[in-house]
Design a protein around this nucleic acid. Sequence first.
RNA 1: GCCGCGGUGGCGGAAUGGUAUACGCGACGGACUCAAAAUCCGUUUCUCGCAAGGGAUUGAGGGUUCGAGUCCCUCCCGCGGCACCA
Length: 763
Amino acid sequence: MSYDHKSVDGKWQKRWMDAGVFEAKEDSSKEKCYLLVEFPYPSGDGLHVGHPRSYTAMDIVARKKRMEGKNVLFPMGWDAFGLPAENYAIKTGNHPGTFTEKNINTFRRQLQSLGFSFDWSREVNTTDPAYYKWTQWMFLEFFKAGLAYKAEMAINWCPKDLCGLANEEVIAGKCERCGTPVEKKLKSQWMIAITKYADRLLADLDTVDYLPKIKKQQEEWIGRSEGAEIDFAVDGSSEKITVFTTRPDTIFGVTYVVLAPEHPLVVLIASDEQRGAVDEYTASVKSKTDIERGDETKTKTGVCTGAYVINPANDEKVPVWIADYVLGHYGTGAVMAVPQHDDRDRAFSEAMNLPIVDRPLVSFDEAVEKTSGRKKVQYKLRDWVFSRQRYWGEPIPLVHCEVDGWVAVPIEQLPVVLPVVEKYQPSENGESPLASIDSFVNTKCPQCGGAARRETDTMPNWAGSSWYFLRYADAHNDNEFASKEALKQWMPVDIYNGGMEHTTLHLLYSRFWNKFLFDRGHVPTSEPYARRLSHGLIMSEDGTKMSKSKGNVVNPDEIVNEHGADTLRMYEMFMGPFSEPVPWNTNGVIGVRRFLDKAMKMTEKISDREDAEVTKMLHKTIVKITDDIEGFGFNTAVAQLMMFVNVVQEKGSITKESLMTFLRVLVPFAPHVANEMWENLGGEGFVEEQEWPVADASMLKDDTVEIAVQVNGKLRGTIVVGSDETEEAIVTMARADENVAKYVIDEPKKTIVVKGKLVNFVV
RNA sequence: GCCGCGGUGGCGGAAUGGUAUACGCGACGGACUCAAAAUCCGUUUCUCGCAAGGGAUUGAGGGUUCGAGUCCCUCCCGCGGCACCA
């Protein structure tokens, strides 16, 4: 006999919703706890089994914290701008919002079918004008602070779709949709000066509790290096080449200087004899895609410009080359080459038959001083390209006026709502579809009232997700993105869980965004997340990534229908360590369902008395579950719950009191089953409304312990002794063991006793 | 190439330097049944042995230690991230 999961699941989900038990309260008498999971992109495929892994884990934490008396905020929403909806719109001509809404409804139904204790009253949706009004408002804050600026940028361009592509849409150098190799195209783009925050984004990592590997990824992405800028005068010219180097101490070993092909000085200094070769080389580099350029990391190419520079340390005259191993966008786009100390310079020298000299090093400071250089800190981080020539994104709320230039749309006119368009395809020259809507584009300048044109680019996907955690604090506020009081109550997020795939960009962007708002006095903390954890991916049974094209995607609905919500929840917790990737195994699901059936049957074993073993196990279980939830060891927590039920089954009876206590540690994992049992036993209200149990320390101690007896470290027997037995008595008993005595004939050289664990005789 | 993580039964995995293989799946045997499913009981790292018990075993090889899956060194394999950042 197994329990009827369909009626049990539905019954409790309805009751939780009706009672609003999981809604966070603006109640300062309790300590707050803000638990955040990454809000999903509501794709047309519906929920993936990967989603509930993170959500269940944090749901368990949330339920436990509530029972411990915390005021918990555990919200959910939708990161709903995105390409799939736009592609769907291009294909069908329907509005992407229709598609998005349908998908959100599916996701919401699926999440609710798993009984997560989300506070649905605070649901947010990035595509809702009431939400993106504030995304636009924040962009204007960047604009007003001078951090948003326009610049010519090379963007990814698909020559077949006539369309600009985001980096994420370029797969292996090809257009994600049509497979055409992607080209570079210069376009004027809105940029946000995240590099101004590079030092703080790096330094403040010391103030947060992230997994070390996550910190490391942030550090590497920011990529700080210390060095110096040194000027090399161009021989016979007033020009100078400034290089950035982290090794000024190698200055005497410089044999040539290299410019990136896109360096502006190239055209100025190339000699007449070399000009042809230089132009040819520059053109060939331009026509290469990033991948082609990257592919050639082993064979270095370049040409001599015919110009020479003077090494400021020793007045040596060295040639100037151009080569694409030097990047235009990093440092000064120019490098002093020291083949003696740098592998890349050495490889280039060997390829071009350039000399490699052996010169002594000088100290860093001495070299900087001798060359009149400047100490300099460089970052790999680049400013954030914020424009997309796309329909399905937040319109950038600026207008361009002939007289006043770029002007912010006044706050009372926000949001700038996405207009209705005929077609969602970008235009021939790569303009956003919004550019073809005259009624949208033509407007008046808010400053002078003259004719002006609206910006038609939209924001990238990252925008809405850069601040959603703030909106949850006060999700329905029309006057502010969130009130100061609400933000003060909830921020920072106590634990933020998400995938490793978001630990560079999303994490960095949202930290930056929050810091900026902090500087403007809009949010109370400089860092948004006190703690960041990540979960491992759920792989398919063969260990590869689940994907629709391979047809190995598991639909969570099927598991819920067949075995119930609690089975899916617990299986996802049981399948392996939370932070590691684990393969899905449909066979394994059945084990969890069997456990839940056995757990349900414990209500038939109620008795006035129970075996002492059961009582002891209950208290051990309380301790183990409490610790495991704190340490995110959900798989071993589930194992412990199983062991408890196994003991009850073996002993045949349990008191009602013990069982009801057990339900309080079961409920975070299997809330439907736990509540159903609770009700069957005559419990009042919800199990979630009970206090988290505390183990009785006196119950944790065993009367007797089994002790291993080793001889020279090899196990030769076990003895059972009283837990308070003296060492002496234990050693005597150990030696008395028949099998042990065979090996310990003479007095042992040494005897090691580890209390409660083992005795080791060294003979 | 560099950095990080990992390698334990047939499978997913467990183990503050202290009885390796918990828990689950699968498999095998038994009970119940006309039969099957479900359920329950038992066995299940390999190996020698009727048994008592012995031997081997945590990717490979060394080392430290009374004792190593765990610590150290060398190497192999897998996964993830970064990748000409001067």
